[in-house]
Design a protein around this nucleic acid. Structure first.
Length: 325
DNA sequence: CGACTTTGACCAGCGC
DNA sequence: GCGCTGGTCAAAGTCG
C-alpha cells in the first residue's frame, strides 16, 4: 500500500536526530552508562521531543500548564509537525535487544524495545498488504518514531483518547510482568503501543508508542471526545496530521520528581519520557532536582539529566496524534 | 453479531 | 547453524 510506504519513506526522510552531540557530557556514572548529559529544560527537550511530535509547552510564562493546554492547546502547540519534520529519522540501525541497561528498570525495559514491527512472517500467512510489513529479508526494518514514557499507575492500559486493540502479549525476559501489544483500531492507522510494567517497580507502567496517528482521537470511554472534524482530513493517512494541534489528553504532565497516580485514569502524571527513533530513552526522577533520562542506544546507555522543572515548567507533553479535547 | 481479548504458534533478528 | 527472544498472527473465546 502506498500510503504506508509513503509514510515510511517520509519518516526516513525526516530530520536528523543529532541532538546528543550538543548535550553537555558530564561523564560516565554507572556501569552501562556512557555518560551524563546536561541540558536545560526547554529548547533542548523541546527539540528532542519535537522529533516525535511531542510538544512541551513552556509554562514559564503566565499560564498554568493544564489551564493552557485545556484552554488553547491548538494555538500554543509548537508547529514542529507542520513542516513534516517531526518525523525522526529511522536509520537502519537495529538496536539490539536488551543490550544495555541492566541496572535501570526503565532503561532495561526500554532497551528491549526495538523491532516493533516484525516483518510479515508470522504464522506463515500470506501477507495481505499489511502496512507495517514491508520488511524484506536482508533489509533493515524501517522503524517508526517511538516515544515512551513511564507512569506510576495501577492500571496498565492508560487511557489516551484512542482506541486500541490488543494483538499480543508476551512474557518479557527478566520481568515477571508480561508485555502487551496494542495497535490502533483505526484500520488505516499503523500506530502501535506496548505496555509493560517495570520489573523493578511494579507500580510503574512503561508505555511505548510507535508511529503516529493519522487520525484524531476517537473518543473516550469515559464519555469524552468524539472524533474531531479534522479527522476527515486524513481519510487515507496520506500524510501526518498537524500534530502540533494535538496534545495528550490524559497526561497533563509536568515532569515532577515525585509522581502520583490519581485514582482517575485520566490523570496519570507523566514521570518519564523516553525514546527517540530507534534509540529508546527513558528517564526517572532523580534527586537534587533533576530528571535523569536514560538513553539506550544500540550498545550503550547514556544519562541525560534534565533539570526538574517547577510545576508546569515543561508544560504539557504533546505526543503525536494526541489531540486535545 | 461485531468488537475485543486471550493464547499458542510462527517468524525474524541477533548473539554465540 | 542454533538457540533465544521479541514481535506478530489468527483461531477461539468472551463480552456487550
Amino acid at each position: 500500500m502506498d500510503d504506508d510506504e509513503k509514510f515510511k519513506s517520509d519518516l526516513g526522510a525526516g530530520t536528523e536526530f543529532g541532538s546528543e552531540s550538543s548535550w553537555t557530557h558530564l561523564g560516565a556514572d554507572s556501569d552501562d552508562v556512557d555518560g551524563v548529559y546536561f541540558f536545560s529544560a526547554g529548547d533542548r527537550e523541546n527539540s528532542i521531543l519535537s522529533e516525535f511530535g511531542w510538544n512541551f509547552h513552556q509554562e514559564d510564562d503566565d499560564q498554568p500548564s493544564r489551564a493552557a493546554a485545556e484552554a488553547e492547546p491548538l494555538e500554543r502547540s509548537v508547529d514542529l509537525a507542520e513542516g513534516a519534520d517531526f518525523r525522526s529519522t529511522e536509520p537502519e540501525t537495529a538496536a539490539p535487544i536488551g543490550s544495555s541497561a541492566s541496572n535501570n528498570p526503565s532503561v532495561s525495559s526500554s532497551s528491549s524495545e526495538d523491532p516493533p514491527e516484525k516483518s510479515t512472517g508470522s504464522g506463515g500467512k500470506p501477507p495481505p498488504e499489511i502496512p507495517n510489513k514491508v520488511k524484506k529479508k536482508g533489509q533493515k526494518r524501517m522503524r517508526q518514531p517511538r516515544f515512551a514514557f513511564m507512569t506510576k499507575s495501577e492500571v496498565d492500559h492508560l487511557e489516551d483518547g484512542y482506541r486500541w486493540r490488543k494483538y499480543g502479549q508476551k512474557a518479557v525476559k527478566n520481568s515477571p510482568f508480561p508485555r502487551s501489544y496494542y495497535r490502533c483500531t483505526n484500520s488505516k492507522c499503523t500506530v502501535k503501543k506496548r505496555v509493560e510494567r517495570s520489573s523493578e517497580d511494579p507500580t510503574t507502567v512503561i508505555t511505548t508508542y510507535e508511529g503516529q496517528h493519522c487520525h484524531h482521537t476517537v473518543g473516550f470511554p469515559r464519555g469524552g471526545i468524539i472524533a474531531h472534524h479534522e479527522a476527515a482530513a486524513f481519510p487515507g493517512c496520506h500524510f501526518p496530521p498537524p500534530i502540533s494541534k494535538f496534545y495528550y489528553p490524559t497526561i497533563h504532565s509536568t515532569m515532577s520528581t515525585t509522581t502520583e497516580t490519581s485514582n482517575n485514569n485520566s490523570d496519570h502524571l507523566l514521570t518519564n519520557i523516553m525514546a527517540r527513533s530507534n534509540q529508546v530513552v527513558s528517564s526517572e526522577a532523580g534527586d537534587s532536582g533533576h530528571v535523569v533520562v536514560k538513553e539506550s542506544t544500540s550498545t550503550t546507555t547514556s544519562d541525560l539529566v534534565l533539570p526538574v522543572p517547577d510545576e508546569g515548567l515543561l508544560g504539557d507533553i504533546v505526543p503525536p496524534g494526541m489531540r486535545s479535547r
